[in-house]
Amino acid sequence: MSPQSNTKTRILELNAIDKDISTLLSTASTAITTLTSTPASASAFASASGQYHALLQSIVVRLRRQILLLEQADIPAPVTGNGGEKEGKGSGGGIDVGAFNSRNDVVGREMEGELWKGAKELVGLLSGDLEGDGDVKMG
């Protein structure tokens, strides 16, 4: 799987977990509401709380999976030497990941491609005019 689509799946998964946590809270609220309704029904509470626990379980499992995947991908980057106290800040041993990631020149390469494409279009557009600019013979 390409890193691009991998990132996308991960983000979508995390979003789904996020959404389920909000559902979890509303399930808890429903379970508590069954207690106060008259007449209070034990079976209704049992099913609501069952749902709550099932959801909680699934969230826990998925979060564990995400943590595992992050660890496999070395995120945060493994800390070596004395950078231990910075662990957990996503610092990667005191290195500014942002500064490093921004050092490649993808933008420059793309810009260059666009410029040459634009130049080609311009030449194509003007090629009619350019014919007169070649060798000139007279006599």
Binding site: N15, T23, L25, S26, A28
Partner: peptide
């Protein structure tokens, strides 16, 4: 229950 529901809604919005 209300607080939980409110939290859930707020979290849902955030999500």
């Amino acid at each position: 229950a209300d607080t939980l529901m409110g939290a859930s809604k707020k979290l849902g919005d955030d999500v």
